[in-house]
Structure formats: C-alpha cells, structure tokens
Amino acid sequence: MVTYIIRRLLYSIPVLFVSSFLIFTFVATTTDPLEAAKMQPNVNKAAIALVQKENHLDKPIIERYGYWVQDAFTHDFGKTILGSRPILPDMLNRLKVTLQLIIAAEVLTLLLAIAVGVYSAVRQYSIFDYSMTTLSFLGLAIPVFWLGLILQIIFVNIFNKWGVRIFYTSGLDNVDPGTGLHFLIQRIQHLVLPVFTLATISIAGYSRFMRASMLEVINADYIRTARAKGLIERRVVLKHAFRNALIPLMTLAAIDFGTLFGGTVITETVYGLPGMGRYFIDALSGGETYVIMAWLMVTSVMVVFFNLVADVVLGFLDPRIRLD
C-alpha cells in the first residue's frame, strides 16, 4: 500500500510540471497586468518600466517560467505583480473558505443522493422514483447562477414579507459576526444557500448513479442468497446490496471532490464568498500570473491527491482489489 501511494505521487510530478508550464505560457502571453495602468492618461512610463523589470515581464516565456519555479519553491509562490503582496497567505485563507463550502456540499450531496438513489432503486417505478427522476433531470439542467439568483430572491422575499431571516443571501459572515454559538449560527445561515446551490447538480448526478448501481446489485445472485437465508428485507438492502452498490459511488465521489476545488467559481461569485474560485477569476482578469499559477498548483495537487484517495478508498471498500 505504501509503495503504491509513493509510486502514484511520483508519477504525478511530471504531470504537474507539464501542466504548469502550459498554463503559465497561456496566461503570460494572453494577459497584461499593466493594461489598466497603461490606459490611464499621462501615465508615468518610468514606473511602468519599473514594474515590468521587477516582475521580469519583458523576458522570454521560458525564462519567466524558470523564475516562477524558483519563486514557487523558495518564496512561497512569490508575490503579486501589483503591490508585491505575498501570495501564499491570501490563498490559504481563500482555501479555508472553499474547503468549508465543498466539504459541506459533498457531505450533503452524499447523504441526500445515497438516500434518494437507494430508495428509488428499491422502489423502482414507484411515484417516488418517477418524481425523483424528474427532479434529477431538472437539477442537472438548471444553470448554477440561475438557481443561485432564484434562491436569493426567494429568501429576500421571505425576509421582507415575514421579517424572519432564515438564510443570508450574500457574504460569508455578518458585518458583526459575534462569537461562539452566535458566530456559528450566522456562519451556517450564510453558507446554506451556497452549499445547496453547489450541491444541486452533484445530488442530481450522484443519485442517478447510486440508483443505477443499486439496481445492478439488487438483481445479483448474492442478494437472492441473502433473501433465501431468511434475512429481513431491510438487512438485505442495507447490509448486502447497499454495501456493494456504494463502492462505485465512493470512487466517483472521491474523484469529483478533487475537481470541485476549481468548480466553485460561479457559486462564490454569485454569493460573494471569498474563496478560491473568485480568487482565480480576479487574478485572471488582472493578469496576475503568479497568483494563477499558485492557484493551479494547489488545485492540481488536490486533484491528484483525491484521485489517489479514491483508489485507496476503493481498495479498502472492495476486498477483491489489491493495491501494490
């Protein structure tokens, strides 16, 4: 197991190098962080030149990439171009927020999707099953930003009509968030809508997947054996069928979780959350190459890591698989 993990991690290093080089080239050639400054009438050309020199903006791409690699290792991913601010502390703060968001979303997704998927499979072709199918397709089809906006409107209307603030529609915390329990509650109130918005597509997709997996398992021979042994139906479904049906879903969830890191842009923008997704968009429009690279590195590592987690989890759940 350990050698397996180490080997996998080693394989990922060349992947990271190649992808980082490609992204760097792409970003560096298509964006100009000094664009806004240059549009200023009567701009001080000497200052522009100074910034360019400091950030090696006038050098060829390969050399700039080399500087970046150096900065990444020795200077915690370096500094921003405008303002020379260290990148890593900012990014870690953003990462914390995004982590809260996606962990909550993933947990919610798994709980709901598994419940819905299992029940739909066990009660195939029932009204529940049909209505869940319809809802799933709706959930897959609804654009995230539209859903976000609708939720915001609904809860603002509720607040205006009845004076009850159930959930907040923007930001991570109140202006005065308070401490202790009060802080926790208002944080939850701020996160519920974004988490739900983020989770909707996943819930729809995962529940279909769980349903299909469950259906496949329910018709297996060993389920017939379990029934023939005289086990009560619930035990057959939960202990025997569910356990097996869960395996492919867990693999999917682990891989999906890794990709979620880059996928929160829309949700964070709509709800005004200071997370990784927004950080990336702001950096992209501002041409902050180093920030984009740092972001890329973090998300790449997350993806690689969670792919690995997926394999390890699979190894644990399914005794037929041996990792070596």
Binding site: L149, Q152, N160, G272
Partner: peptide, 14 residues
C-alpha cells in the same frame, strides 16, 4: 465585496 450585480440588488432588497 460582492462582485455580482444581481447579488447586490438582492442584498440591498434584503
């Protein structure tokens, strides 16, 4: 800091 105009419109309403 709320980048989305729709969001700020709802935020001021709420």
């Amino acid at each position: 800091f709320l980048p989305d105009t729709n969001t700020t419109a709802e935020a001021i309403r709420g």
